[in-house]
Design a protein around this nucleic acid. Sequence first.
DNA 1: GTTGGAATTCTCTAGACAGCATGTC
DNA 2: CTAGAGAATTCCAAC
Length: 732
Amino acid sequence: MRVEDVCSKHNLPASVAEVLKKSGIEELYPPQAEAIRRGVLNGKNMVVAIPTAAGKSLIAELAMLKSVLIDRGKCIYIVPLRALASEKYEDFRQKYGELGVRVGISTGDFDAPDPSLARYDILVATSEKVDSLLRHRAKWLADIVTVAVLDEVHLINDPGRGPTLEILTARLRRENPKLQILALSATISNADEIADWLNAEVVTSDWRPVPLKEGVYHRGAVRFSDGSERKIKTGVKDVLAALALDTVQEGGQALIFVSTRRSSQTAAELIGAHIQGILTHQERRELDEVAQRVERALGEPTRICKRLGACIRMGTAFHHAGLYHLQRKFIEDAFRGHLIKVICATPTLAAGVNLPSRRAIVRDYRRYDPMLGQQFIPVLEFRQMAGRAGRPKYDKYGEAILIAKSKDELEALFEAFIFAKPERITSKLASEPALRTHILAAIATGYARSFDGLLDFIGQTFFAHQHETRAVAGIVDRIIDYLDREEMIRRQGELLVATPFGERVSQLYIDPESGVVLRDGIKNISAAPPTELGILHIICHTPDMGLLYLGRREKEELERFALEHIEEFLVKVPDPYEDPEKFEFFLAELKTAKMLQAWIEEVDEDEIHEEFGIGAGDIRRAAEVAEWLLYSAHELAKLFKIRRALSPLRKLRQRVRYGIKEELLELVTLSGIGRVRGRDLYRAGYRRIADIRRASVEELKRVPHIGEEIARSIKRQVEQEFEESGEYRNRV
DNA sequence: GTTGGAATTCTCTAGACAGCATGTC
DNA sequence: CTAGAGAATTCCAAC
């Protein structure tokens, strides 16, 4: 089926076909053609469950273009990751911008100036962001959407985030019954069940644009499921290095999936030692540039940065969430550019951005679970890793390889992964934390106003499709009691109404439990001003804050530390003997709070890495969440009129945001000035905005990390400020 | 004593969404 | 209760 014919048949302008032709798309893939035949362009709902890279997105794109260009419709494209959102946003804008289609993006870290759909035809957003938008302007947004795309719907299976996806889908549909829903999924075994729920057609297929050979390595050879075999004879002893080298020698690349960050690092180093030798001079030079960029991604290179740099110079890299996101991006780009030959990654890469490779090696197909020990990873996850194999246009076929250590294991791996059916997706909505949040939101937005209304609302979710709605009646009842008791809602006869507290908690997008913790914490601030540690601990006590891993040897010291600071905590410290488990949690909270404190004391990232066992990426992520919670605490303090708490919370929020001591707060209000440059300026004697106003651009340029551009920019800013008000802000 | 390597014991374990108001290094 | 990789530590032989 040709794109051109599809366009003319469905009244799409010929320019659409031209635009797609430019991206190399003229002929539709079989699953895409199937979707057209089943009526995606006639407004049919559709579930598309096909492998990665089999062209799911284009199906949705055609449907969106039809809606936008012909019916003046508005579309939202919902993804599970920010990185995916920006990838889609760039892609859509680049491809369809010239058709006059206005594309916007809205995620927590990157928001269009006005994410209202009025300005855009297609809005790309994360599911939580869409949920949040619905909470702020419920009806209006849902009203105007004509096409909603749920990318990676199999995320419904995720206990933490799946419920959000169900809820927002149910809300969008109820608000606009004519809404066209397109659900895109990896191959799963119950796509039909989801289709049934959405009243949709199903397209399932195993078809791939680049054929995939799946096999298991054992004793010097890979046995593929099609019966073929490939001997690995590189002369290298280490199996992993041999498998990588084998494909690199023939001009391919390899992605290697391991289960821990540590493994990814050691594997990248080990393989690098073998790859290094076959790099050309040109490649070495370019790799060195990449390595330098990675090392300079954040101020002074830390130990991890240097290790990563060393790997990159050998043509390999490790990739995990401990890295700073820019570093990850550099690595991904260099791999796409065929420069980096091998990436050793944790599962980050399996579900992340598009990054194909000729060979995908799954070394660790087990993962540790604190409850259950080592467990096989889900087939679905293996499929996503394997699906990365095969670069369109470059490789004749892709190879996905598991590594067996014995003959028995060889057979077992074929059974457990290669021939196995992917799991069934099940709703995780019936969990208390998930329902707590969404029930409050439903009441706060007036979407449901009674017990029956709530059940009715839950009745439209995937959960109700898989179970009886009544199965959650008990939990719903308990949650209503809880919300009532904590004064987030009030009962007026049968009617349920949100209090201002409940409403604010719902809009802040925090867990109701977090709202309670923050409220009680700040109410405990007595006459004496709270300490940094006390506030940071409250933040970490909240279920929204992820906690750092508590090492065995750290406990004693933390316990001592807790005792020394026992006066500062704003909650009752649990008794280690009465409730050891709770006490463990407390220590983990304390460790996390200490880490944030180190961050705002401007402790070297390298030192934080050493002491707390986390990388730059982890620090930023924790700081980001903490900042959001500090803002929330501040808002609640306003609501409850706890004046004493306002200023400390405001200051701390800014400090956590930038990772700075209080003395830099003023400098950091300048755009372009953050943790590093702020400290450099301060050290050079520029401690206040007034100092900068007195300095010349030439003088400022002498400060480290400040060049012509930045110097001019901050000069401009301070002068402007002067003109505007005659004095500058003292406030934070 | 020192050194280098093997053997043994010990330790630790993936990922990443959200507010708000504008810009990190 | 579960498992395996990698780091840390101990052990031991050869000098």
